[in-house]
Structure formats: structure tokens, C-alpha cells
């Protein structure tokens, strides 16, 4: 008796269950899966959103772009949803290309990143890139190239560091995090539409709490990778009389405070492999040259960033133990400009 009542109740519950939950059902072939999202601003007024959507059915064209404008990003996204033929599922967005003119306004950029981070649809792992070019050109460029597939733009950033050491990627959550960090700034890769390939890597743009500071070249970006302990294996350098490839690098830093001024000693050990050299060039000369070159590059970059008060190397992170939590909040303005770095490179054959 009791059991039958319980089962009757459960039948009622089950039927309620089946009545609910019908909102997310949409077969994958009826969804559009945009891979790249381009955001730009027209005339400093309206947001313009561009989506690159692969087309699975056709063999001629691999993808198409959809563009829509709106007062806010959500607004524009809404327009796209309304006007598109299929349901748009943003869960596969892999890259977000932001036009530089939009990125110049600090507050707008912060809001944009906050929106992207908070959005349930767009994964926070999606990478961010900055372009000077017209966003639409970058996204539609893929269609003119032979032999690339729809995910080419995403693949471009996922070659792996061993294959393309200069290239690096920055996901949304890192950009978001950098807005709140007081001791570290980040670099965002800058790209433009290429002639033969889909994209061309132009270097990186330094962001300080959501504000664009400046753009640095690929070689300088490499310095940042070195300091972030990223793998720089396979990086090649032309020294004029020889060319070398870095096979391994390791950096060791020691920190201390001198008269309330931060002081860092960094030793970079490079294991190199000599690819070619002119006759009569000794190993020693090559070592000296590479050491001098790297040190000079670093000091230039440091001077530049100290001037703009953006701690791109993340030195401040290492002072967490030395400077108190509250003082560290002013690291960029109070300590970083006075930072002294003793940077030494030790190159060696493998």
C-alpha cells in the first residue's frame, strides 16, 4: 500500500521531470559553431561583432563571416542570434580578436573583458589577440587561402612552443586576472591578416590593468617568455657572423631590498646549438655576442617598461615575501621604477 503510493508519487514526479528541460536541446548540425569572435568599434560609437563560422556541408567555402552592430556587445550578440539561420552556440569560440582602437579605451576594454569572462557561453579559455587591421579582413582571410581548414586561426595559436617558440598565446582569464594584479602585467599577441598565410605575428602589446601601453616586437616578446620560465626551445637568433638555436634556457633570480629599493639579480643560462658560422669564428665569440645581445635587449625593454610603469616581467610577484601585501599594491608606481636588475646571460654549448 505504502509502496504503491510512493511509486505513484514518483510517477507524478517523473512526469513533471519530463515536462521540464527542453530548452537546450538542439542537434549539433542545427547549431552554428563560431570559432573566432572579432570585436571592433565603428566610429568610436557602435560595437561591431564579427563571427567566423565554419560551414561543414560545402566543400568550396570553408567558413563564412557574420557581422552585426550594436550599442553594446550583448546587444550585438543578440542581433546575431536573431538574424542567424541557425542557433549560435558560442561554446567553441577559440579566439577573440580585438581591434586596437577599441582596446585604447581602458574602461571599455575592462568592461569587455569582464563581459567575456562572465559570459556562460564563451569559454574563458578562449585566446585573445589584438589587431591593427580591419577585424573583418582578418577573419575572412581564411577563405582565400588554399588547403586550410576552418579551425586554422585556432590552430595557428596552438602549434606548440616547440614548433613556434616566438609565438605565444594569452587566454581571456589571464587578461582578466592582469586587471587585478598589482605586481604583474601581461602581453597580448598582436596579429594582422597575412598575404600567404592566414595570420602574421607582429609581436605583442603590453597591457597594464586593461590599458594598452605599447607594442613590442617578437624578439622582445621572447624576453618576456624567458622570464616567465616558458619553454624557449627552438628559438633561433642570427648574429651576423653565425646563427644559433637555443635548446634550453633556465633563469634564476635572487631578490633583496636595498634602502627600500628592490634589487634583483638574474642569471640566464642558455644552452645553444650553433647552426652555421663563418669561418674562423670561435665559440667564445659567439657566446659573447649572444650574451651581449640578449642583455642589451633586456635592458632596453626594462627601461621602456619602467618608464611606462608596467611590470611586464612580473618581478613584483617575487617580492610577495619581502614587501607587505598592502605596500605591494603600489608596486608599479612606488617600487618598480626604482627597480635595479643585474641581468647576466651565460651561453654555453649543449
Amino acid at each position: 500500500m505504502i509502496k504503491s503510493k510512493v511509486s505513484r508519487l514518483s510517477i507524478v514526479f517523473l512526469s513533471i521531470l519530463f515536462l521540464s528541460g527542453c530548452w537546450d536541446i538542439k542537434d549539433i548540425n542545427n547549431r552554428s559553431l563560431p570559432l573566432v569572435l572579432g570585436i571592433s568599434k565603428e566610429n568610436g560609437q557602435e560595437y561591431k561583432l564579427t563571427l567566423q563560422i565554419p560551414i561543414p556541408k560545402s566543400d568550396n567555402q570553408i567558413s563564412r563571416t557574420v557581422t552585426e552592430k550594436g550599442k553594446t556587445v550583448t546587444n550585438a550578440l543578440g542581433h546575431i542570434q536573431t538574424n542567424s539561420e541557425n542557433a549560435i552556440d558560442y561554446s567553441q569560440v577559440q579566439l577573440i580578436v580585438i581591434q586596437k582602437n577599441l582596446a585604447k579605451n581602458q574602461q571599455e576594454f575592462r568592461d569587455l573583458i569582464k563581459f567575456l569572462m562572465g559570459s556562460e557561453d564563451i569559454p574563458s579559455r578562449a585566446l585573445v589577440a589584438i589587431t591593427d587591421d580591419n577585424v573583418e579582413n582578418v577573419l575572412s582571410n581564411i577563405n582565400n587561402k588554399l588547403g586550410v581548414n576552418a579551425s586554422a586561426i585556432y590552430d595557428y595559436f596552438n602549434k606548440g612552443t616547440a614548433w613556434a617558440p616566438e609565438l605565444f598565446s594569452t587566454p581571456i582569464w589571464e587578461v582578466y586576472r592582469s586587471q587585478f594584479l598589482s605586481t604583474k602585467d601581461i602581453a597580448v599577441p598582436a596579429v594582422r591578416a597575412g598575404k600567404d598565410t592566414v595570420l602574421v605575428f607582429e609581436g605583442s602589446t603590453i597591457l597594464r590593468q586593461g590599458q594598452f601601453i605599447e607594442t613590442i616586437g617578437p624578439k622582445d616578446s621572447q624576453m618576456i617568455n624567458v622570464f616567465n620560465n616558458k619553454d624557449v626551445k627552438g628559438y633561433t637568433e642570427n648574429l651576423g657572423f653565425a646563427s644559433i638555436m637555443v635548446t634550453n634556457s633556465s633563469i634564476q633570480s635572487k631578490i633583496k631590498m636595498n634602502n627600500n629599493k628592490p634589487y634583483v639579480t638574474s642569471d640566464l643560462r642558455l644552452k645553444i646549438h650553433i647552426l652555421e658560422r663563418k669561418q674562423g669564428i670561435t665559440n667564445k665569440k659567439i657566446y659573447e655576442k649572444i650574451e651581449r645581445l640578449t642583455e642589451r635587449r633586456f635592458y632596453n625593454l626594462l627601461k621602456k617598461t619602467q618608464h611606462s610603469q608596467s611590470d611586464i616581467f612580473g618581478f613584483g610577484q617575487q617580492f610577495q615575501h619581502v614587501i607587505s601585501y598592502h605596500d605591494l599594491k603600489d608596486w608599479r608606481y612606488k617600487y618598480y621604477p626604482d627597480l635595479k636588475v643585474d641581468f647576466k646571460v651565460h651561453a654555453n654549448l649543449e
Binding site: I28, R31, P54, D89, S91, A150, S151
Partner: peptide, 15 residues
């Protein structure tokens, strides 16, 4: 995976 949560696929697989 096909009709409710295709977001879980990797991009290549989803396509």
C-alpha cells in the same frame, strides 16, 4: 553530446 552539450567536444571533433 550531439543534441544538448556539443560544447564539450574539442573543436575538431565538434566539426
Amino acid at each position: 553530446l550531439v543534441s544538448v552539450n556539443p560544447g564539450i567536444f574539442r573543436t575538431d571533433l565538434a566539426l
